[in-house]
Design a protein around this nucleic acid. Structure first.
Lengths: 225, 225
DNA sequence: TAGATTGTTAATCGATTAACAATC
DNA sequence: TAGATTGTTAATCGATTAACAATC
């Protein structure tokens, strides 16, 4: 039953494929070749075929790929053909902003609870969801079959909360706290370290200035990594 | 004057080094060897030495690295020893959350303006900054020597706004809109595609479940990529 | 059938890890 | 000086690109 370990580089490109396929689908385009898609996405046809064949043969020789079919298959691979149930831990500005961002729900990521340790904010209702106290978190997660916890709390309390989450059987943590979480390895952690991202941008600003203004041709940029 | 093109993989690890070095510094630790640091950060001593030597020799044989000195040097490399001036484009939930997140300012990323196309929100003051109308954006950026624009607007208007930003000489775009921005290549774009990140997490959830619950040892996780 | 385009193997490129001589 | 640890070269590993036979 050994799966041959698919690289995170490939996984990281799937959402971008999905995005472009969705757009093609909306435009009513039924089929596309790896070459055409690579032109649009500014990548290589080879990479697209190689990436897709990691998961199976979704195309047809002489024809290309059926846009709608490929779209659905990538959704299945990513596991977003089924709903996920989320809780937000930390009802601060960022936590509230995420709850208010309706696109996640459109993709099947359903916010079911919001928790905070500040009694002052508990009881407040955000997009129909009442903020509960942290003490209720563990029971709520177990009783409501929650998949994913979104950590939007300061780094000082993040490690402690992550341990509690591990204890109540959470499967994944979407971590916005600026710290690495030491959790059992059956728990998946996806980090969004915003300040790291901003520092990378800062580096690229300085280094591009050193190079001395190059030619100014328009060039669509690729995915983040 | 040819610089030998430093890989984004290395750049992406620098903020994490900086974070751990900052912690060591706060603990009063003066020196550290690549081996000790790699133990703490769950990486290899080889990688740390290789990464640092991309930029120069910061250590000393037989001694290791001076924590405080290395910390400062990485700050310089990342270009965060100087202030950056930012504007937020899009005063929605996410835009407001970012303005309210004080840690960015602590690292020298100063929010100087907020813009929105909705006249209803213009005039509102967020953390001391008055929301201005989009029409004022171009002049404001030129007059206030703005480095970086943060795009927290829907994808539908992001491309158009990115073009305007290019015209008024912005240097970098921190892009939260779920779209690839076609801008001249002297403009640096750093994408934060939150839904892509969530989809990656979703994939890793499904794939880890297929593997069948493995052993449950604690294991600190590495940086995102 | 002939042309197009995939799936897949082989070649190349880049990034990580290992090894060790240089040196503090 | 002897021990420790870097800086750097060499070896390995993995990811990307190129090539082409299989096949629709």
């Amino acid at each position: 039953m050994e799966e041959k370990e698919i690289s995170q580089a490939v996984i990281g490109r799937l959402p971008r494929y999905l995005r472009y396929l969705g757009e093609l689908k909306d435009e009513g385009i039924e089929r596309i070749s790896s070459q055409e898609l690579s032109d649009i996405m500014q990548t290589t046809a080879s990479q697209i075929r190689q990436d897709l064949n990691t998961f199976g043969g979704f195309g047809q020789q002489g024809y290309g790929y059926n846009v709608s079919y490929l779209y659905d298959e990538i959704r299945k691979i990513l596991g977003i053909d089924k709903e996920h149930r989320l809780v937000i831990i930390g009802a601060g500005h960022l936590g509230q902003a995420l709850v208010n961002y309706t696109n996640f729900e459109r993709r099947g990521f359903m916010f079911r609870g919001i928790f905070d340790c500040d009694p002052g904010i508990c009881g407040k209702v955000i997009r129909g969801i009442r903020v509960r106290h942290m003490e209720e978190m563990a029971d709520f997660i177990r009783e409501n079959d929650i998949d994913i916890a979104v950590l939007t709390i300061p780094k000082t309390s993040a490690v402690e909360v992550a341990k509690k989450l591990a204890d109540c059987g959470i499967k994944g943590i979407w971590n916005f706290a600026h710290v690495d979480l030491p959790v059992p390895k059956q728990i998946q952690v996806e980090n969004v370290h915003l300040s790291d991202s901003l520092m990378k941008l800062s580096y690229n600003l300085s280094s591009s200035q050193e190079e001395g203004a190059a030619d100014g041709k328009v060039d669509s940029n690729g995915q983040n990594r």
